[in-house]
Design a protein around this nucleic acid. Structure first.
Length: 213
DNA sequence: GCAATGATTTACT
DNA sequence: GTAAATCATTGCC
């Protein structure tokens, strides 16, 4: 039995997250707090958004992170930005993965948004994905949700307090029993750090990506 | 139903 | 050259 959280929402309460939310030094705490928040992207003049149901935390202190051990390249430089900045990078040459940079300027930590439940602009998301209707597979994965929301490489390094990409608080407060915490997906190469339970989900939500159980 | 595979950029060996 | 924070399609049980 699962619950569609967006159906329980009091949609009158909509607050854009403040920068202080992203400056938290505990990236895992931010990753869990982002569950139930709503990610928006304005693309081609239309706004689409989805409630975050799955996240993963990454830190320069562990091997799965692109900026492990303080590694700085053209790609990872965004990770060192101040919290509240977007980090979008190309994975496997095809998919743009969307992350939220956390912590203060100079410390590379980020939260990967792995899955969302569509709540606004659904018809545009369906069209971008070349689908016929809304199904769980529309946004149940980091590559999929970027296509659905229209997020691309041009959205890398943006300030999340701006008008292009941002996150809102809708008063959705999952109880402790609805949180799930497991190991991250696709990071086997990270050795012992692949065992870190840094993946956070809203238990039972149909839009969670399947892999890595 | 499932595993194997291709698409294609970035970064490191 | 190879592997990567992936996904859709193909082909074989």
């Amino acid at each position: 039995m699962f619950i569609l959280w967006s159906k329980l929402t009091d949609k009158k309460k909509r607050l854009k997250l403040e920068q202080s939310f992203y400056l938290n030094a505990d990236v895992c705490q931010v990753a869990q707090d982002l569950l139930g928040k709503v990610l928006f992207c304005k693309s081609d003049g239309v706004i689409s958004g989805g409630m975050i149901v799955e996240t993963e935390a990454y830190s320069e202190k562990e091997k799965a992170c692109h900026a492990y051990n303080g590694r700085r390249t053209k790609r990872t430089s965004t990770l060192f930005e101040r919290g509240g900045t977007s980090y979008v990078y190309l994975c496997y040459g095809m998919y743009h993965l969307f992350n939220v940079v956390t912590n203060v300027n100079g410390v590379a930590e980020a939260v990967l948004i792995r899955a969302v439940e569509p709540v606004q602009g659904v018809e545009y998301m369906v069209r971008r994905r070349n689908a016929r209707r809304l199904t769980p597979q529309l946004t149940s994965g980091p590559g999929k949700l970027s296509i659905a929301l229209g997020i691309g490489k041009e959205d890398n390094g943006l300030d999340l307090s701006g008008e292009k990409v941002w996150i809102e608080e809708w008063g959705i407060s999952p109880s402790v029993t609805e949180f799930g915490q497991t190991t991250r997906v696709g990071v086997d190469y990270a050795g012992d750090d692949a065992q870190l339970p840094w993946r956070f989900i809203l238990k039972g939500n149909p839009y969670i990506s399947n892999k890595g159980k």
